[in-house]
Simulated scan of single mutants.
Amino acid sequence: MIKVEHLVKTYGNLRAVDDISFEVGEGETMVLLGTSGCGKTTTLKMLNRLITPDSGSISINNKNILDGPAELLRRGIGYVLQNNGLFPHYTVAENIAVVPDLLKWDKEKTEKRINELLDKLHLSKDYLSAYPSELSGGQQQRIGLARGLVADPPVLLMDEPFGALDNVTRSKIHGEFKALDELKRKTIIMVTHDVQEAFELADRIALMDKGRIVQIGSPAELLFNPVNDFVSSFLHEQRLQLEFKSIKLTDVWEQLTDTGKKINPSLLSADAGIWEALENFKFYPRETINIINQHNKEVKSVTFDQLMSAFSHYKNLQQHE
């Protein structure tokens, strides 16, 4: 869906983006991760022509982004900003309707789409006549997301979209983000400096430093097969929690022992991560959780100790490969 080749952007003597190339498949979420000044936001802004590269090319759906007016390109790309980017003098309804108005949608179509998104984002229709200043940070960010999604663009660019939120609100929105069916059909490129956020939301991560991409891969690939010391050290402080988030129950399925005690009727999908499984334990004696493998419909009931044993075994296998 998105192909970037040999992209360069300089400011004076500074190479903000230094000859980077990558591809993002249709329906994939790619996260550009790195510290401030590594070039990730500059890269993102070149994708919708907010910044013009010095050299290199960008194509979306096999079409060079320079082959047409910039405003038409941007109408086909959702864009979500860190501080939501809402117009303070517009109501919520007017903010969300900005792109539909540019596309000359009729009023009924616009209202139907806005109401549909509010339902999906768990926002009351009572907010439609409110102004951004009357909303909480989490509500403002949901409205910003609704505005980015309203025209149903195939591509969504997100620049530190949850960076201004407190940890509790951010965690809740992460859960909503992963569950939102609207986003499962999108090709998404997200910028963040938050390692946990990247590991939680990305299919693949492009770790950047000094304008270059150091490594591209799945969260597990960055953890267990780092290309150099920079990647290892970048992830070192949060390594255990990152392992819990990047290793899926399907990865450890063969190492999981079934107790046969399916007392708890609830089922957790094996496509979930170890972290999510841990959150399902209430930690009382002899407790088990049930996990269903959607691929073969097998159900296993496991204890906390069995899950940790399978996790440790999987880690050992990865480190010796």
Rank of each mutant, 00 (worst) to 15 (best):
M1L: 10
I2P: 05
K3W: 00
K3N: 11
V4L: 00
G12E: 03
D18F: 00
D19Q: 10
S21W: 05
G25Q: 13
G25C: 05
V31G: 08
G34Q: 01
G37S: 04
C38K: 06
G39S: 09
G39P: 07
T42R: 00
K45V: 01
N48F: 10
I51V: 15
T52E: 15
P53C: 08
D54E: 12
G56N: 09
I60Y: 02
G68Q: 11
P69H: 06
P69D: 11
L72P: 01
L72G: 01
R74T: 06
Q82E: 12
N83A: 14
H89Q: 13
Y90L: 15
E94L: 05
E94C: 07
V99D: 06
P100Y: 01
D101C: 04
K104C: 09
D106T: 09
K107R: 15
E111V: 09
E111M: 15
K112I: 12
I114A: 02
I114K: 00
E116G: 02
K120Y: 06
K120Q: 13
S124F: 12
K125N: 13
L128R: 11
Y131H: 07
S133P: 00
E134T: 14
L135T: 12
L135F: 09
S136V: 13
S136I: 11
G138A: 09
Q141V: 08
L145S: 03
R147K: 13
L149D: 03
L149E: 03
L149F: 06
V150R: 04
A151L: 03
P153H: 00
P153D: 01
P154S: 14
L156Y: 09
F162R: 02
A164Y: 04
A164F: 04
S171T: 10
K172L: 01
H174K: 08
F177Q: 08
K178D: 12
K178F: 07
D181N: 13
L183R: 05
K184L: 13
K184A: 12
K186W: 10
M190I: 08
H193A: 05
Q196M: 14
L201C: 07
D203R: 01
I205D: 02
L207S: 03
M208F: 09
D209V: 02
K210H: 14
G211E: 02
I213K: 00
I213Y: 01
V214M: 06
F230P: 00
F230G: 01
V231S: 10
V231M: 08
S233P: 00
L240A: 15
E243S: 07
K245H: 06
T250L: 15
Q255W: 12
T257G: 05
D258M: 07
G260Q: 07
K261N: 14
S266E: 15
D271E: 15
D271V: 06
G273N: 14
E276A: 03
R286C: 12
E287Q: 12
N290T: 05
N290Y: 03
I291F: 04
E298D: 13
V299T: 15
V299E: 14
S301T: 02
T303G: 06
T303R: 06
Q306L: 13
F311Q: 08
K315M: 09
K315I: 14
H320L: 10
E321G: 11
